[in-house]
């Protein structure tokens, strides 16, 4: 596998991101600082070669804000729940490994979904089947098949949010088709 030249347009989001990080670190978004940051980012990206990231080209901020609201709400409630379970049930708790098949076959989206789930206390990604986009989760307090089904629904809902925010157009179309069928 030889190194392919990365077209500037593919690299641009990364460079822009790095320049923003640079400005944020200095807390200075003046022209001079950003120009220096741009030079630096370009040098860093070219000196430390990594394969190009093919983004979908979409990013919907309108969906992002309610998603973050939902995420933080779940974060807080799940934390309280785990705290309560640890106090009341302790080691008598019944746990399970749950397989969840995702819609998207994008590594990026799978990773994002996995992170969103893992960051919420009580569930943790153990393993990823890359070929079928299946996440294997370790979840607290799963007593029945209904509990597992609830978790699957929840994970797929999280994925749906993420597809709406930054999924590819194909994934989005599939999601909409699914909604129509229901």
């Amino acid at each position: 596998m030889s190194r392919q030249r990365i077209p500037l347009i593919t690299e641009l989001p990364l460079v822009v991101w790095l320049v923003l990080v640079w400005g944020a670190l200095w807390q200075d978004f003046g022209v001079g600082n950003l120009a220096f940051g741009a030079i630096l980012a370009y040098v860093v990206v070219n000196f430390f070669y990594l394969p190009p990231v093919e983004l979908t080209g979409r990013f919907n901020v309108l969906w992002l804000i309610p998603f973050l609201g939902r995420f933080f709400l779940k974060l807080v409630t799940a934390s309280a729940e785990v705290f309560w379970l640890a106090l009341t049930r302790g080691s008598r708790l019944r746990n399970a490994v749950v397989a969840v098949t995702l819609r998207s076959h994008s590594d990026f989206l799978v990773t994002a979904t996995g992170h969103a789930i893992s960051l919420i206390p009580g569930s943790l990604v153990l393993e990823v089947d890359r070929s079928t986009s299946t996440l294997y989760l370790h979840c607290l307090n799963v007593a029945s098949a209904d509990d597992a089904a609830a978790i699957r629904r929840d994970v797929r809902a999280t994925e749906a949010w993420l597809i709406r925010i930054m999924g590819s157009r194909d994934d989005l179309a599939a999601l909409r088709a699914e909604g129509v069928r229901r």
Binding site: L18, V21, W22, G37, V44, F48, T111, H115, V128
Partner: peptide, 19 residues
Amino acid sequence: IVFEVVTRLIFHTMIVLSI
């Protein structure tokens, strides 16, 4: 794959942070 994706995304940022 999760680790690989995350590494890809944060590596350059960490280098910029170090600089």
